[in-house]
Amino acid sequence: MSIEVKSISKSYGSQKALDAVSFTISKGEIVGFLGPNGAGKSTLMKILTTYISADNGSAKVNAFDVELDQKSVQKSVGYLPEHNPLYLDLYVREYLEFNAGVYSVSKSRIEEVIELTGLSNESHKKIGQLSKGYRQRVGLATALLHDPEVLILDEPTTGLDPNQLLEIRRVIKNAGKDKTVFLSTHIMQEVEAICDRVIIIDKGKIVADRKLDNLIQEETHIIMVEFNSQVDENLLFEMPNLLSAVNTHDFVWDLTFATSEDMRATVFDFAAANNLKALQIVNKQKNLETIFREITK
């Protein structure tokens, strides 16, 4: 097992950041770690990379205990923190050479990660001259430098333009062929494009942990309906199996039903029974963003 987390808890004063969090990640998995701001994502990542200690519970990375064998954990993990710390006065190649010395890796590996992360044309520049997107690449290159078995990436695509996003997705996906990747992001399309599995945390607790395909194909579906006038939200819940009702704009609602049955006829009958007209009724494809809103609402 690449990552084992057992009943990890962490508080900052009276605020509980993590509340008895447990999960395991097998070698070769690419796992997306999702949650609202302040849910505890970065705190857990810092515990797994030995930057901070948990109050209770235990965690292992590559079978090394994060409290008892910190050096071994650090050698086997590549970590890109949310706020990427860089020496802005150093040149890209100079910075990577410095980190190569820390990890005792060969200079040939520097050239490999420069090529791998698309930094070839920027490697002669000072880091302070780079755009935010290219600074992220330098951070990712540093995380990959010592060829770690586990990559822990906290918001790895922050500040990247659409073309850079595609390139970094490719890098992370390729890395996942022989490494374990544990990444947090607020970009749902990122998770859908890269990850095999999703763990969702809310208010310090794990609220979902499933394979991505299984999570999206659950026995629920969404109908978008436009009425001819406003309708009381409470009235909508007279319809059977209705899980949630979101008024997206004007008289348009997204209705989520806890069934795989086509509920359009039910919505039509509801409108007729309440002197409403359904101007359009459309089945919507459920995506990760919708599921995330439902789970963390």
Rank of each mutant, 00 (worst) to 15 (best):
M1Y: 00
K6T: 07
S7V: 00
S9F: 00
D19V: 04
A20G: 13
A20S: 15
F23R: 01
I25H: 01
I25V: 11
I30W: 03
G38K: 02
G38V: 10
G40W: 15
S42F: 12
T43E: 12
K46W: 04
T50H: 05
S53F: 06
A54C: 04
D55W: 09
A63R: 13
D65L: 07
S72E: 10
P85H: 14
E94C: 14
Y95V: 10
Y95T: 08
N99F: 12
V105Q: 13
S106F: 01
R109A: 00
R109T: 06
E112C: 08
V113G: 15
E115Y: 14
L116A: 10
S123I: 15
H124Y: 14
K125Q: 11
S131T: 06
S131L: 12
G133F: 09
Q136F: 15
V138R: 14
L144G: 01
L145G: 14
D154F: 02
N163W: 01
L166Y: 01
E167T: 03
R169P: 06
T180M: 03
V181I: 12
F182Y: 02
M188V: 01
M188N: 02
Q189V: 05
E190Y: 08
E190M: 02
E190S: 00
I194F: 04
I194Q: 02
I199K: 07
K203D: 13
K205T: 12
D213I: 13
L215F: 12
H221C: 08
H221G: 09
V225P: 07
E226V: 07
S229G: 08
Q230G: 14
Q230W: 05
L236T: 05
A245I: 01
V246R: 08
N247L: 15
V252K: 15
T259P: 07
A265F: 09
A273W: 03
I281D: 05
N283C: 05
Q285R: 04
Q285P: 05
N287Y: 08
L288T: 11
L288A: 06
T290I: 12
T290N: 14
I291H: 15
